[in-house]
Amino acid sequence: MVRRSSSPLATPWGRLALTSLTHGHPVTVVTDPDMEPAMGRLLVALSTQVDQVAERRR
């Protein structure tokens, strides 16, 4: 059985942002418009620069 956490910090982006904050390395995440607003706010709160492209490339 695979157990998934509902915590945003359990996502790869959340772990990367937390690690970068801990070690003082800047991180920029480029995302499509489908990123959940809560995840974007969390990343910004963890000092991550979030750049959202205008449209999703197909």
Results as ranks from 00 to 15, higher is better:
Met1Ala: 14
Met1Asn: 13
Met1Gly: 15
Val2Asp: 09
Val2Cys: 14
Arg3Pro: 15
Ser5Asp: 08
Ser5Val: 07
Ser5Lys: 08
Ser6His: 14
Ser7Thr: 15
Pro8His: 10
Leu9Pro: 03
Ala10His: 05
Ala10Leu: 10
Thr11Asn: 07
Trp13Tyr: 08
Trp13Ala: 11
Trp13Gln: 04
Gly14Leu: 15
Gly14Asp: 01
Leu16Val: 01
Ala17Glu: 00
Ala17Trp: 01
Leu18Tyr: 04
Thr19Asn: 10
Thr19Gly: 15
Ser20Glu: 11
Leu21Tyr: 06
Leu21Asn: 06
Leu21Glu: 04
Leu21Cys: 05
His23Glu: 07
Gly24Val: 13
Gly24Pro: 03
Thr28Ser: 06
Thr28Val: 12
Thr28Pro: 07
Val29Phe: 05
Val29Gln: 02
Val29Thr: 05
Val30Asp: 03
Val30Pro: 10
Asp32Ser: 11
Pro33Cys: 01
Asp34Lys: 09
Asp34Met: 15
Glu36Gly: 07
Ala38Glu: 07
Met39Tyr: 03
Met39Pro: 01
Gly40Glu: 14
Arg41Pro: 02
Arg41Asn: 11
Leu42Pro: 01
Val44Lys: 08
Ala45Pro: 01
Ala45Val: 01
Ala45Asn: 06
Ser47Ile: 01
Ser47Met: 04
Gln49Asn: 08
Gln49Val: 13
Gln49Gly: 03
Gln49His: 05
Val50Gln: 00
Val50Phe: 02
Val50Met: 00
Asp51Gln: 13
Asp51Lys: 12
Gln52Leu: 12
Val53Pro: 03
Val53Met: 11
Ala54His: 14
Arg56Ala: 12
Arg57Asn: 09
Arg57Lys: 14
Arg58Asp: 04
Arg58Met: 02
